[in-house]
Design a binder for these strands. Structure first.
Ligand SMILES: [Mn+2]
Ligand SMILES: [Mn+2]
Ligand SMILES: [Zn+2]
Ligand SMILES: [Zn+2]
Lengths: 139, 139
DNA sequence: ACGAAGTTTTGGACTTTGTCAAAATCCCTG
DNA sequence: CAGGGATTTTGACAAAGTCCAAAACTTCGT
């Protein structure tokens, strides 16, 4: 995130200490949970309420400034890297999450065959597997 | 599900009324939540504890007898149809969930480009969109 | 059949992740 | 720099699931 304050103004959002700090935390910690981000913000800002973290993450997500991903068995994760339709690789054992460029091409990277009359706006892909560290552990 | 009791025995699971009833409920209601399945079971069996529904769904999932999918903003959904690597189409507005045959081919239908040393065992795809009914409503 | 041994089911407390609502505080414009 | 609308805070609440120990049930050998 280049300039959090400018970004907020561009989206007509009043600049507050909490928003700037959360935005910076998301940049510093890609794929972090709301709780982890709250910790990050507290280290830099002193304190922030749990509710504010959620408020900010929600408004930033709604405006398309950040992206939320929600893998099974995990709290929602947030990231900075948007607009490039990338996907994710998640370790079943430790939850480690990595970015993966779209397997097919540009967004939307896939088309459902028979789509039952649905109007599809996104194809979400999550690759599940075991990360190198966890492969070693349980070998 | 052909014969719930035989299926349980094949997997070395003691046959209990609860397991048989849950298995039948999953067959009758594809993509239902644990709560919905509990309701289904109560209609047929009289009563079952909430915990038992979870116990049974977990053991059946672990054994690979049923499959669990966990779309964002929804409780986990369970289904009978396994082993064919199909995907799902979910309505953002009402949650309606439909099966979609794999866009690419056989399992695993996709390969991540750079996979960071992960050993990938599944490519999960969820198509997000709006179902026909919801398209009409909010037009 | 019967009973022992090992599982499963139950009910209740608890955890995690997130939302709701009202009061206090803050940010921006004039 | 003051006022008003937006944001933050606080504390209660909700949904989905897990943990635990006691009671009930399945299975298997006799
Ligand atoms: Mn990412
Ligand atoms: Mn399905
Ligand atoms: Zn791992
Ligand atoms: Zn719908």
């Amino acid at each position: 995130m280049r300039d959090p304050e400018a970004t907020l103004r561009q989206h007509d959002l009043p600049v507050t200490a909490q928003r700037v700090a959360v935005l910076r935390a998301v940049s510093r910690h890609p794929h972090a949970t709301a709780d982890e981000l709250a910790e990050g913000v507290r280290g830099e800002l002193g304190s922030i309420s749990r509710q504010s973290v959620y408020n900010v993450l929600n408004v930033l997500t709604d405006k398309g400034i950040i992206r939320r991903i929600q893998p099974a068995d995990s709290a929602a994760l947030y990231e900075d890297r948007i607009g490039d339709n990338h996907h994710h690789l998640v370790c079943r054992s430790c939850g480690r999450t990595e970015d993966v460029n779209c397997a097919v091409g540009e967004a939307p990277c896939l088309k459902a065959h028979s789509h039952h009359g649905f109007k599809i706006d996104e194809a979400e892909v999550i690759y599940w597997g075991t990360c190198p560290a966890c492969q070693k552990k349980r070998r």
